[in-house]
Write a protein that binds this DNA or RNA. Structure first.
Length: 755
DNA sequence: AAATAGCGCTTTTTT
DNA sequence: AGCGCTATTT
């Protein structure tokens, strides 16, 4: 047995060794919070607690997998893999699949991401004939999300006078009704959104004493990381699960709470103290990460917040250099200054690229840094932005997977019913959406009965639809016989997606193809890893049955990014990311950029004190990522929404006590009004046009079998002709782009050769 | 039906 | 500036 506790300080050690009863660990930035959590799990296992009796909830899946690796190393046993460790969403999604019939869902329910949710709201708006500008889908979704987070059903929502009054004032009186329909559509689609995963876990534990008892018995020890960022729904799940044993340990730092905007509540910290009056509290206040200057500066920043738990962060480290402030005249100069500073530091101190991080408030800011780093040949890596699973080609292919597994999944169906194009257009899908809403059935169920009830669709369309559902069914029959990879490969090709992407030979098209290949590779890897047995969490290595595509999709639907093995040349790079995604990370040299009023703090956060305080905590998080040296940067002008805007330095710079700062001179403010539009200089661009003479054919002469030529697609062969008069359509196979449907009255075809 | 042009909105942050 | 949605064109 390893005696790893020697690596902890007294307070950390006490927190780890106190295993029984309710515990709260308030852990300042860099004070070894993750260390306490991992050591605690390891300690429990060494004391003889079965790993599958431990539930550890983290904020990201990445944090969970890293922690698991460290625990396996600490206890020197792969048994530790059986700890139930992951995000709230992924752990409870797993449990909901096991218990699905108790809440009236099939176990193969789909998880909608926020894009699916938004597009569902859009189609509901269309149905209700509401203006999507008034009812901004993202804003409506946010309202719904807050309701669900507070465990309010549509009924509760419509009964709540305050919410209804708010929506009236905001000129969106039908928000509650949209919520109601939204929820009904999710049911029709056998789908849950992110908030539903937590909502229905609460329903499960509230209405099913057996299930509650089962999981209370199972999870003898519960640990929660980043407790300050949990919402009410998460709080209640934990409270219910811990009610029996009360072996619950929550770890957090109120000063680092940065997700109130999506429903997280510091109130949960106070609730904890009320729920468990005999709780023990441990405060980790010694910082091991940063220099004196950085810690003292951070303390001076957070003092400006009224709402906080008293805490005194200190360090034994060197005082280190002062914090540098870079002033730039423009956003592109800001990029240059930062890149040059990185270059100099790197050369003077013989440092790796990976020692540096550039942190910003919004993803859109990365561009100027990309450009200037590239100019200086400094390799970088951007995290966040559009993740792998948000790329169009990946979403398209995954939509086929989703539809194969759960054909009721309406968003998936609408995404691919005409992609690649097969002549089922918006006229048809609009009819289907309306009919499905009226009959309260999924579109898929309607399609299966098309021969009996044509829904006003014409014969040609019905045939195409039948062809489509036949194709999906041919995928479905292989679901439990084929391995995940074999079926995924089959679908990628049979769906026509690979062919469609291959026809695009631009660099973007090639990159799309690579992404699809990467997804298929990930599925192949997935097939090679052993399966977890769900009731105990044990890994069954003698299980020879193949892992299915369904299993893959279930594991993958809550991941934000593909965790591909980083190649060697990828590791030594400058990191660029938003501050939100930097939470929990540390870097020797940190640059916090774009420190300007209306950007950081964001212009959207200036209406209330609590919002500004959240921005300030965000700044605190950013500052405390730095180990050796912190540099701040701001620009006096910046392109925003396409035009040049004057900017003032952020109030946060002035809030740092000047003794810790190395200023470029006095901070000068622009004359008010603070935001002034400047007119950018427009270059004069002359356009040249060229037209080619083209003799089109009479639409009545086009026949099956003819060789024809199209202005864009080049030569092709007519496969079939349907319809009469002005609506006459031809299906043509082109060498360049494959099969296309063309309306002859518009598509100017030239006949080359008759059959 | 499919491609293109033009318009208006966006920018918080993420499971 | 870039994107997605709508209107227009083919």
């Amino acid at each position: 047995m390893k005696d790893f506790l020697k690596e902890l300080n007294d307070e950390q050690k006490a927190a780890v060794e106190t295993t029984e009863g309710p515990i709260m660990v308030i852990a300042g930035a860099g004070s070894g919070k993750t260390r306490v959590l991992t050591f605690k799990v390891a300690y429990l296992i060494q004391k003889g607690v079965e790993p599958f009796n431990i539930l550890a909830l983290t904020f990201t899946n990445k944090a969970a997998s890293e922690m698991k690796e460290r625990i396996i190393h600490l206890v020197d046993s792969t048994d530790a893999r059986n700890v139930w460790m992951g995000t709230f969403h992924s752990i409870f999604a797993k449990i909901l699949r096991i218990e699905s019939e108790k809440i009236g869902f099939p176990s193969n329910f789909t998880i909608y991401d926020s894009d699916d949710s938004k597009s569902l709201i859009k189609s509901i708006l269309k149905e209700l004939n509401l203006d999507p500008k008034t009812y901004n889908p993202a804003a409506v979704l946010h309202r719904i999300s807050l309701a669900k987070t507070n465990l309010m059903t549509p009924q509760d929502y419509n009964d709540d006078l305050e919410l209804v009054a708010y929506d009236q004032t905001a000129n969106k009186p039908l928000t509650g009704q949209i919520y109601q329909i939204y929820q009904a559509r999710l049911r029709q689609s056998s789908a849950m959104d992110f908030d539903d995963l937590l909502f229905f876990t609460n329903v499960l534990l509230r209405d099913n004493p057996d299930a509650l008892y089962k999981y209370q018995q199972k999870f003898k020890y519960i640990l929660v990381d980043e407790y300050q960022d949990t919402n009410f729904s998460q709080y209640l799940i934990i409270k219910r699960l811990a009610a029996n044993n009360e072996n619950i340990c929550v770890v957090g730092d109120d000063a680092q709470s940065i997700y109130a905007f999506r429903g997280a509540s510091i109130q949960n910290i106070f609730n904890f103290q009320k729920d468990y009056p005999d709780f023990r509290i441990f405060k980790l206040e010694q910082n091991y990460r940063s220099t004196q200057n950085i810690i003292k500066a951070a303390n001076s920043i957070i003092q400006n917040n009224k709402n906080q738990i008293r805490k005194d962060l200190w360090t034994n480290n060197d005082s280190g250099p002062k914090i540098t402030v870079l002033k730039a005249t423009s956003d592109s100069e800001e990029g240059m200054l930062v890149a040059h500073s990185i270059f100099e530091n790197k050369m003077n101190n013989q440092l790796e690229n990976s020692a540096f991080a550039i942190l910003y408030r919004t993803n859109a800011q990365s561009r100027s840094f990309e450009e200037s780093l590239r100019k200086l040949n400094i390799p970088y890596k951007i995290y966040g932005g559009l993740s792998f699973y948000k790329r169009k080609e990946i979403k398209d292919l995954i939509a086929y997977f989703r539809l194969t597994i759960n054909p009721k999944d309406q968003e998936a169906l609408l995404r691919v019913i005409n992609f690649p194009a097969r002549g089922i257009g918006s006229t048809t899908t609009d009819k289907l959406i309306v009919a499905a809403g009226e009959k309260e059935k999924s579109i898929w169920e309607l399609l299966l009965n098309l021969r009996n009830d044509s829904l006003g669709l014409n014969g040609g369309t019905i045939n195409k639809i039948i062809e489509f559902i036949t194709k999906i069914r041919s995928f479905q029959v292989q679901l439990h016989t084929q391995s995940a990879f074999d079926l995924a490969y089959y679908i990628a090709h049979q769906s026509g997606i690979v062919k469609d992407i291959k026809s695009d030979e631009t660099p973007e098209g090639i990159s799309k193809l690579e992404n699809v290949e990467e997804l298929l590779n990930a599925i192949r890897d997935f097939g090679d890893t052993p399966r977890m047995v769900q009731d105990t969490g044990e890994i069954k290595t003698d299980d020879n049955s193949v892992r299915t595509l369904e299993e893959f999709l279930m594991e993958v639907s809550l991941l934000t990014d593909l965790e591909s093995d980083e190649k060697k040349e990828d590791t030594n790079r400058v990191t660029m990311m938003t501050i939100h995604s930097a939470k929990g990370l540390e870097f020797p040299f940190v640059y916090i950029v774009g420190l300007e009023e209306d950007l950081f703090p964001s212009y959207l956060s200036q209406s209330s004190r609590s919002e500004i305080e959240e921005e300030r905590r965000l700044f605190y998080v950013a500052v405390t990522r730095a180990m050796k040296k912190l540099t701040l940067a701001y620009a006096q002008t910046r392109y925003r929404w396409g035009n040049l805007v004057m900017a003032n330095p952020s109030r946060f710079i002035e809030e740092i006590k000047s003794e810790f700062l190395d200023l470029p001179g006095k901070i000068v403010h622009n004359p008010s009004p603070s935001v002034k539009k400047l007119k950018p200089i427009q270059p004069n661009i002359q356009k040249t046009e060229s037209k080619i003479d083209f003799v089109e054919a009479d639409i009545n002469t086009v026949q099956t079998g003819m060789q024809v030529e199209h202005q864009q697609f080049g030569q092709g062969k007519v496969i079939s002709v349907e319809g009469n008069g002005p609506n006459k359509k031809a299906t043509v196979f082109f060498q360049s782009v494959g099969q296309k449907q063309l309306l002859l009255r518009f598509a100017k075809l030239r006949i080359i050769e008759q059959e």
